[in-house]
Design a protein around this nucleic acid. Structure first.
Length: 210
DNA sequence: TTGTGTTTTACGACCTC
DNA sequence: GAGGTCGTAAAACACAA
């Protein structure tokens, strides 16, 4: 009996579909009914499919976990940079105020100029402090996640961050208004997985991870 | 020994080529 | 119509209590 199963397994490894000739030959060699051989192959294919689905699930899950961690570190970095922007903006404003008071102590003709400078400084936008003039990349945060506004001269190290990666982040926040539920993250993970690990179909129905 | 969970075998219903 | 998948019942098996 054990021998028969081993032979069936070997035959299944060679080819998981059963042609009529092979079926009758196997049945003859094993002393089984052709119907039994056919049923055995049907059940074996079902078990194989269940197993591959399980493997696919585990691979996707681990990929998702990695991407979730990466995403969280990017969010943390973003928070750090935002805090830095706030701090530097405050410093700049207090410096401008102290300079104005110095001017006020001077000639009365300087008062008008100081008022002009103050008025201008009030209109300065945060983004302006980052602007490099023309063609510079600016990352703003009016959604939950970072958005690449102008990729013309981005500071993203392109070798380390493939295009698909950057575009994916933008697409997600635009589509759902910056939502961050599990489903969107999962879609994101799948997308990244697809781009990063485009292993070829090995004929067994599961991915090969590079 | 027995109750319980898992695996294997077999079958019917339905689908595809 | 042959042969595939899918869902499921029943038998066989493994194992803890």
């Amino acid at each position: 009996m054990m021998m028969k199963v081993q032979m069936l397994e070997r035959s299944f490894e060679e080819e998981n579909k059963l042609e009529p000739e092979r079926k009758t030959e196997l049945a003859k060699n094993l002393g089984l009914q052709p119907r039994q051989v056919a049923v055995w192959f049907q059940n074996r294919r079902a078990r194989w499919k269940t197993k591959t689905l399980e493997m696919d699930y585990n691979r996707l899950k681990s990929c998702y976990d990695i991407l979730t961690t990466e995403c969280q570190s990017i969010v943390n970095e973003n928070e750090k940079l935002k805090a830095e922007v706030t701090s530097l903006t405050n410093k700049l404003q207090s410096k401008e105020v102290s300079e104005n008071s110095t001017i006020n102590k001077g000639s009365s003709s300087a008062v008008g100029e100081a008022e002009t400078v103050l008025a201008l400084s009030d209109n300065v936008k945060v983004e302006d402090h980052f602007s490099t003039g023309s063609g510079g990349s600016v990352v703003v945060d009016d959604h939950d996640g970072p958005q690449l506004v102008d990729s013309g001269d981005s500071d993203f190290p392109n070798d380390d961050y493939p295009h698909e990666y950057v575009v994916s982040v933008v697409d997600q926040s635009e589509e759902d208004g910056g939502g961050d539920d599990g489903q969107n993250r999962f879609g994101y993970a799948l997308e990244i997985a697809d781009h990063h690990h485009h292993g070829e179909d090995n004929g067994f129905g599961w991915w090969v991870w590079s």
